[in-house]
Structure formats: structure tokens, C-alpha cells
Design a protein around this nucleic acid. Sequence first.
DNA 1: AATGAATGAGGGTTCATTCAT
DNA 2: AATGAATGAACCCTCATTCAT
Lengths: 173, 173, 173, 173
Amino acid sequence: MTEKQEKILRAALQLFAKEGYHATSTSKVAKLAGVSEGLIFRHFGNKEGLLYAILAVGENKMKTLFVDIVMESEPKQVIRKTIEMTSKIDVSDYDFWKLQFKLKWELEINSDKKMEPLKMALTNAFQKLKYESPKMEAQLLILFIDGMGSAVLKGSSLNPTEMIQFLLRKYEL
Amino acid sequence: MTEKQEKILRAALQLFAKEGYHATSTSKVAKLAGVSEGLIFRHFGNKEGLLYAILAVGENKMKTLFVDIVMESEPKQVIRKTIEMTSKIDVSDYDFWKLQFKLKWELEINSDKKMEPLKMALTNAFQKLKYESPKMEAQLLILFIDGMGSAVLKGSSLNPTEMIQFLLRKYEL
Amino acid sequence: MTEKQEKILRAALQLFAKEGYHATSTSKVAKLAGVSEGLIFRHFGNKEGLLYAILAVGENKMKTLFVDIVMESEPKQVIRKTIEMTSKIDVSDYDFWKLQFKLKWELEINSDKKMEPLKMALTNAFQKLKYESPKMEAQLLILFIDGMGSAVLKGSSLNPTEMIQFLLRKYEL
Amino acid sequence: MTEKQEKILRAALQLFAKEGYHATSTSKVAKLAGVSEGLIFRHFGNKEGLLYAILAVGENKMKTLFVDIVMESEPKQVIRKTIEMTSKIDVSDYDFWKLQFKLKWELEINSDKKMEPLKMALTNAFQKLKYESPKMEAQLLILFIDGMGSAVLKGSSLNPTEMIQFLLRKYEL
DNA sequence: AATGAATGAGGGTTCATTCAT
DNA sequence: AATGAATGAACCCTCATTCAT
């Protein structure tokens, strides 16, 4: 990955996250990256290729965020870590996460698959803790973290740390 | 509102909801509406005007959905009705709701304001029921139903009726 | 000529004079006239018809301006009146004259014909006054007054009264 | 300046001069230049940018035409050269000059500034020759050359060489 | 690897004009 | 006589993409 390729990816991530995929032109990306427009196509084939390159780079970020939870054996810890997940997001990754949420709507990219391991870990945890409907509990918690992320990234007035504390108490953690 | 104006609005709603605002061209709208492209601009000024016309029409749908909850005095009923809200959505309004969620991301339209009355009604209800942190409880519930709506409209595998039943039990309703 | 027809003509004259014929849309004319756009076409057939209607109305203004000069028998008076012509222009006719000059360039309308009677009257006058080349003198004077009108209407810094005085002296009037 | 850029400029000059700025579409320019329409915007930003590019190219033509007069020290020569100026115009620059005159009306571009050096040179010359009102004389002569140019470019029946001879005699040159 | 010229299709929008009422 | 809805062509301009260098 050359220096210019990275510049392009960074610029594209930034713009796609801010304006959306369709509203961002390749010329804007090139300009922000300080690169000729042609180079984008040399390296990524077409605009869509550029998008997938960004998503591929980001895929790992997601995995490292999940792996710590999924590998956890203590059920209470699994739940705690899930709830606290949103607060673990680095500010420098803000754009990346915003893009993820945006694309779910703009390009109807389904994220169920990516969430599957987390869902299973949670189901397992709730089962061990003798909750009545562990699957539902897991799904509800996923709904929660999705909503939290969504709220934070959209700049809602919601206070995330407060909300996290509140939820931890609710789950007696 | 002439017949053709309505045709345009319907076509635009449909396309904006499916493809997104930026990815939908006015020519596509005109074609689907069976109308000359120029007519869109005669009636709505520009593409953005068309969007706002749709949003204005939909504003009422939102209000009628909320009014029943906000007017309710029985606290348990307020919560129940909130939880059951998503199931009250008419299939014919599917596009409208999808557009609402999509626009929150595509155009960064903030929906906090619209949710305010609901939030206050819920806070009130939780207070009457002696919950410890009524404001937090209200916010959490809104997070849940927002997440549910989001999941359903994105075509997630989540089963909404099941989830509603689960939530009702959780809130002892 | 109904009241609305006149309103249209006045609006069109004003706009054609200010913005030019091509840069003025029929919709702008209708708006300024406070009239539906369709009415323009009912009355004047098409945009060009509107233009010719304006020119026809103005034709008389030109004639009345010339007739006083052409009818004059005293040669010195012919020349004096020609020189003083520009100062005789009513401020309310400003738009009309501006349009005349504009159209000469925008639509390549030749005004030689209209000037012919004036040219002959001047030639005659100079001949009576024993000028060596009366035809040339006539043409030169027309060049001058045309240039003056042009300069004034274009908002040049030229002071017309001063220039008129100067010319009168030059021709020993 | 690439070859295609020049082709665009030439085509635009030709069309703007013939039809006027507003009546000339960028697509017509592209077609005449044998170039894709988009290229116009890549090189000149927008239609107005194209116009200013033409004017900038032509600015020099004007200067070279003036410089010979302004640099002249002999007063009689200044006046003679001014009078003869119009006849010095190259036929190949016809379009350029026509555009200049057209734009004065179509876009209300004031040319007073450009004429200022010439006016001062003439005032000076008339002063040296002890004319009574040198400033007025200068202005009148400018009116003349403006009128001459105007007449020639509009295809009036006026014979320029004859007129020039006549005027030279009048000024005893 | 990198550029910048070049393109054709399509973008949103305005235009002059027609037609039913 | 007068309106306002409706149109299709044209408008200026931007788009993603290709290609010669």
C-alpha cells in the first residue's frame, strides 16, 4: 500500500462518512487527497472498488472490537463489555463508524452477519445466568448498542456514559 | 393538490425510500410518476423542495402516531402503547418510515425534537410508577423502539412481534 | 389594447432594455406584468411577436422625434435641432431608447433606414450652408449624435449638455 | 494552452460575436470546436469563465492598438493615428472587435477605463495645438472612432475610408 | 506509479410554448 | 380574455471513467 493509496483511502473515508457515498464525487476525493483523479481508478478500479477497499480496511477494526467480548468466558463480563463497547470507540475512528452506519441505510448493507458472533456470545452468557429468554435478551442488548452508536454518531443529545452506567446497574453489574 | 402533484409525491417517496435521496434523479421520479420532468420543478421548485413536500406530508403521520400515546393518562398504558407502536405502522406507510430513517443519515436531519413529546410522556409515566431514574428509563425505551424500527425497516431477521411481547413482559405489562 | 396588454408591453420593454432580449424569459415578463405567462402568447403569438409589438409602439416615438427636424426649412435650425435631439429625450423613454441601441447589436437590426430622412435633411441643410461635402458632414454629425446617445445610455461619464454646447459652437450656432 | 483549448476559444469567439453571449449555448461552442462539451468546463470553469478567457486574450490586441498612439509625441500624429485607427483593424480580428462592442450592450461592460489613456493622449495633443477646449475635442474624437467602429462592424452602408479622408481634412492633417 | 486531457452520459433546472378550463 | 397545469427541448454543468503520455 503506497503512500498515495493511503491518502486516497483516508480522503474517501472522510468524505463518504460526512457526505455519504453518492453525494461524494471522485473528483472531491482526489482533490482532498491531493492526487490526480485518474489515480483512484488506477488503484481501485472504480468508485465502488474504492468503497470496498475502505470497508475491507475497516473490517479488522470491527473484529478487534468483538474479539475481546467473544473470547470472554465469564458471562457477567460478556454483558458488561458489550454494554461498555460504544465507549471504547476511539475518536480517530469516528469517521469509520459513521460510514458503517450510513452505508447500512444508503446501500442497504446488512450487518446481521457481522453481529452473529456477538449475538451468540450474549445468548450464551444470558443462558448461563439463567435468564428466561436468553436469545431475546441478547437481541435486545444488540438493539441497545446499535441505538447507542447511532445516537452518538448522529450527534444526539444523549449522554452515553450516563446511559452506560444506568444500564450496568439495570443488569446488576 | 392536483392529481399529478400527488403522483409525483408518491413516486418520489417510493424512490427516495428505496434508493436514497441523492441516488434518485428527478428524471427517474418523473418517469415513475408518468409526468414530464419539468412539472416537478413547476410544483416544487427544486429537488430539495420535493423532499420537503414529502416530509411535510409525513409530519402528520408522525403526530397521529404520537398523539394517542401522549394523551394517555394511565402510566402503564403509555409504556405499553409506546412498545406496541412499531406494530401499529401501516404497511402502506412503509416507504414513508424508511425515508425518515434514511434521511437521518443521508442528510443528517436530527429527530430529537420530534421525539421530545414522547420522551416527556414516558418520563412522566415512569415517574408515576416510582422508577428510580425515570428520565433514563424513558431514553432507554426510546432507544429500543428506535432500534426496532430501524431493524425492521432494514429487513433484519429480527421478529418484531416476538420482541414486543418480550418487552411487555420485561416492563410487567 | 387592453390594460393587461399594456402591462405586458411595459414589463417586456423594461426587462428587454435592462437584461437584453435573450436573457429575458417570458416567465419573468409575466411575473413583472402581474399576468399569467399564457396570456403573453394569447396576445403576441410568441416571444418574438412581443418584441415586434414593442418596436412598433416605439416606432412612433422615433418619428415624432424626427419630424420636427425634417420639417424645418431653416438650415441652421436643422443642424441645431439635430444636435440638441439627445437632450430632448424624456427620462420615461429611457428604456425604449436603450432597447433600440441594444437590439442593434443583439439582433443585428439595421437602423440605417430609419435614419435616412434625418440624413437627407442634414445633407440638404449643409448644402444650403455651402459646406464642401454636405453628405459627409451629415454622416459625421449622425455619427456624433449616435455616439452621444450610445454613451449616455451606457452610463458613460460623458456630460451630454456640455458636449451639446461644444458641438453647437463648433457648428457656429 | 493545448490545441483543444484554442479551438474552444476560437469557436466561442466566433459564436459569441455572431449570435451574442446569451444566445450561444455551450453545446454549440463544443460542436463547432469539435470537442466534448464537458471539456469547456474543465478548462474554463463555466460559461462566464470562457467569456473572460476570450476577453483576456483580446486585451492585448487593444493595448497594441493604443500603444502606438499613446507613445507618439507629435500632436498632429496623435490625432491622425487616432482617426486612422479603425482602418488598421485586421479582418481576422473582426470577430474579436464585434464581440467587444456587443458585450458593451449585452453585459453592460463599461469601456471608459480602457479608453482613458487614449483620451489623455488626445487631450494633450489638442492642448499643444492650442485648441480652445482640448478635453471636449478629445471626447468628440473618441465618440467618432467609437461610432466608426460600431458602424463598420454592424455592416452599415457607411464608407470608412472616405469618412477617414474627410475627417483628416477637417483637422487639417 | 502518476498525471491531466478528454469524453459521453446524465445531473438538476429553465425555457418557450400549448392546452383545457 | 385569462389562467395555471403541463410539456419537451434545451440549458449549463458534474459525473465516473478512459487514455495517452
